[in-house]
Simulated scan of single mutants.
Amino acid sequence: MPLLRILLLALPLIELASLILLGQAVGVGWTLFWVLFTGVVGLTLIQRNGWGMLQRLQQQMASNRSPFGVLKSGMWGVLAGVLIAFPGLVTDVLAIPCLVLALLHRGGGSGPDDQGGGPHRYQRGEHTVIEGEWEAGTPAPADDDQRLNRP
């Protein structure tokens, strides 16, 4: 836990040092342009991925399906947007793998057969099979009011 606190304190200093080095290399104007450009791109990614993920989550929940696939696909885009929006070069480099994962998982959880981590469901002829857990043993007899084929 102390290492995480030290990293959180050191990150802004590392970002500031990287921006100073970039300013010395390419000039103050280009450095300010880079900071503004990445800020706008990051906020756009957050807005687009956040609202898209929220809408897909609502669709999944309305159709009584698992939201895990949507959360997995949208999380990477939002995280990439946050890292890009934070001014500095180190977080911009860290956002690249997040963008790649967001592109690999884009549209996840929106398909009709995507269960996203829940029980898998498939058709066998005219029957729908839902995978689950089963324990061997003798089942307890059901009460008359709990039977499906009541007279």
Score class of each variant (00 low, 15 high):
131 E>L: 11
75 M>I: 02
68 F>V: 07
77 G>L: 00
126 E>A: 14
93 V>K: 05
93 V>E: 09
87 P>L: 09
73 S>M: 00
87 P>N: 12
79 L>C: 06
95 A>P: 01
79 L>Y: 10
87 P>I: 01
127 H>Q: 15
111 G>P: 02
92 D>N: 15
67 P>R: 06
77 G>F: 02
61 M>C: 11
112 P>T: 13
88 G>H: 01
105 H>V: 01
83 L>E: 00
98 C>Q: 10
96 I>M: 14
65 R>Q: 14
101 L>E: 07
75 M>Y: 07
66 S>V: 00
69 G>K: 04
104 L>W: 04
90 V>D: 03
74 G>N: 03
72 K>F: 07
68 F>K: 10
116 G>F: 09
66 S>A: 12
85 A>E: 02
64 N>P: 00
65 R>E: 09
82 V>Y: 03
94 L>G: 06
100 V>N: 07
91 T>Q: 01
130 I>H: 02
131 E>W: 00
80 A>K: 04
129 V>C: 05
98 C>T: 03
105 H>S: 11
63 S>V: 14
104 L>N: 07
66 S>C: 09
101 L>F: 13
64 N>D: 13
69 G>M: 04
74 G>R: 03
114 D>H: 04
92 D>V: 12
124 R>K: 12
84 I>L: 14
98 C>F: 13
128 T>Q: 12
61 M>D: 12
94 L>Y: 06
67 P>S: 02
119 P>D: 05
89 L>N: 08
98 C>I: 05
90 V>K: 06
126 E>M: 14
86 F>S: 05
71 L>H: 07
80 A>H: 03
102 A>D: 05
113 D>Y: 13
64 N>S: 15
123 Q>P: 06
84 I>N: 00
93 V>A: 12
62 A>D: 13
124 R>Q: 15
90 V>T: 06
107 G>Y: 04
71 L>M: 14
112 P>V: 11
91 T>E: 00
101 L>V: 08
92 D>R: 07
75 M>W: 03
81 G>C: 06
95 A>H: 03
99 L>Y: 02
128 T>G: 01
112 P>F: 05
88 G>C: 05
110 S>E: 14
85 A>N: 11
61 M>R: 15
97 P>F: 08
106 R>S: 09
84 I>C: 04
123 Q>T: 08
114 D>Y: 08
118 G>Y: 06
91 T>P: 01
98 C>D: 05
111 G>K: 08
66 S>T: 12
64 N>Y: 10
129 V>S: 09
124 R>N: 14
101 L>R: 15
119 P>L: 08
96 I>K: 09
110 S>I: 04
91 T>L: 02
112 P>E: 12
65 R>H: 08
